[in-house]
Amino acid sequence: MPKSFDCSVETPVSIEQIHAVYCQRDYWEARLAPHKDLVELRAFDVDASGTVRTTVVQDLRNIVLPPPFGKLYPRGLELVQSETWTVDHDATVRGDIHVKAHGAPGSGRGRVVITPSRDAKRLECSATVQVKVPLVGGKLENLYGRQMIDQIPDTLRSIKEWIDEGA
């Protein structure tokens, strides 16, 4: 059963700015750069309506296996995360995230909804997470849901820095 999480974040970043930054391939590459040995931006597209689609692949061999075995294990033990981001006519950012493990059991999905507060000084955020992993899905839902909510302020801060640097 999906689990929901909510938060409210004070930020000078607007919904339009979030969307504009998400539409830039350079932003995604910079965001992933610190993890370039483990993560790859495999696909990036922005369509005519402004919908952003990304696919990020994480190589799990060296994360879940001891170093000598990671080199011996065939490629294919990876986590594929596909994200779709849109801005609705009511100034709401919606992110749909789908995660699938290849070479191991498990999948998950999440939805992030970000709306401006009435005073436009805060963003109201909600996340819904569902993880399909035998035996531990519920525990992972709690972990990932909390991580999604905890990462929103950091993501907004990085967007603000990206805008300020004029990247």
Results as ranks from 00 to 15, higher is better:
Glu83Asn: 13
Ile63Leu: 15
His89Asp: 13
Ser126Val: 07
Val93His: 04
Val133Asp: 00
Asp6Gln: 12
Leu140Ala: 14
Val112Arg: 07
Phe44Ala: 13
Ala30Asp: 08
Leu38Val: 09
Gly70Ser: 09
Arg53His: 09
Tyr27Gln: 08
Glu16Arg: 14
Leu123Pro: 05
Val21Leu: 09
Thr54Trp: 05
Ser107Leu: 03
Ser107Trp: 02
Ala127Tyr: 10
Trp85Asn: 10
Val39Ile: 10
Ala167His: 15
His19Glu: 02
Ala33Gly: 05
Thr11Asp: 08
Leu135Val: 14
Tyr22His: 10
Thr51His: 05
Val113Met: 02
Ile114Glu: 11
Ser49Arg: 14
Gly145Met: 00
Ala127Asn: 06
Ser49Phe: 00
Val131His: 04
Leu156Cys: 07
Leu156Thr: 06
Gly103Phe: 04
Phe44Ile: 12
Asp47Gln: 05
Arg61Glu: 04
Asp59Asn: 11
Asp119Glu: 04
Trp28Ser: 02
Arg109Ile: 02
Gln58Tyr: 00
Thr155His: 08
Thr92Ala: 09
Arg25Asp: 12
Thr51Met: 08
Gly110Pro: 01
Asp154Lys: 06
Arg157Leu: 02
Thr55Asn: 06
Asp37Thr: 13
Leu140Cys: 11
Ser14Val: 01
Leu38Arg: 14
Glu10Trp: 00
Gln17Tyr: 07
Ser49Lys: 13
Gln151His: 07
Pro116Ser: 09
Lys139Tyr: 00
His89Thr: 10
Gln147Thr: 10
Asn142Thr: 13
Lys100Asn: 03
Ala127Asp: 09
Val93Lys: 00
Leu79Cys: 14
Val129Tyr: 06
Leu79Ala: 13
Gln17Trp: 08
Glu40Gly: 05
Arg42Val: 14
Gln147Val: 08
Glu78Arg: 15
Ala120His: 11
Lys160Cys: 05
Arg31Met: 10
Lys36Val: 13
Ala104Val: 04
His98Phe: 00
Leu156Gln: 03
Gln17Val: 07
Arg157Asp: 07
Pro134Val: 04
Val52Met: 02
Asp119Pro: 06
Phe44Tyr: 12
Tyr73Asp: 05
Tyr22Leu: 15
Arg61Ala: 05
Leu32Asn: 09
Gly137Glu: 03
Glu40Arg: 10
His102Asn: 14
Ile97Asn: 04
Gly166Trp: 04
Lys71Gln: 12
Ile159Trp: 08
Pro66His: 11
Glu10Gly: 03
Leu60Ala: 14
Asp45His: 13
Pro12Lys: 14
Arg111Met: 04
Ala20Val: 01
Trp162Gln: 11
Gly70Leu: 07
Lys36Asp: 15
Leu65Gly: 06
Leu156Asp: 11
Ser126Cys: 06
Cys23Gln: 15
Leu143Glu: 01
Val99Leu: 14
Arg122Asn: 04
Ser14Leu: 06
Ser49Asp: 14
Thr84Ile: 05
Lys132Thr: 11
Val64Ala: 04
Trp162Ala: 11
Gly76Ser: 08
Gln58Cys: 08
Val64Glu: 07
Val113Gly: 06
Glu29Tyr: 05
Arg111Ser: 07
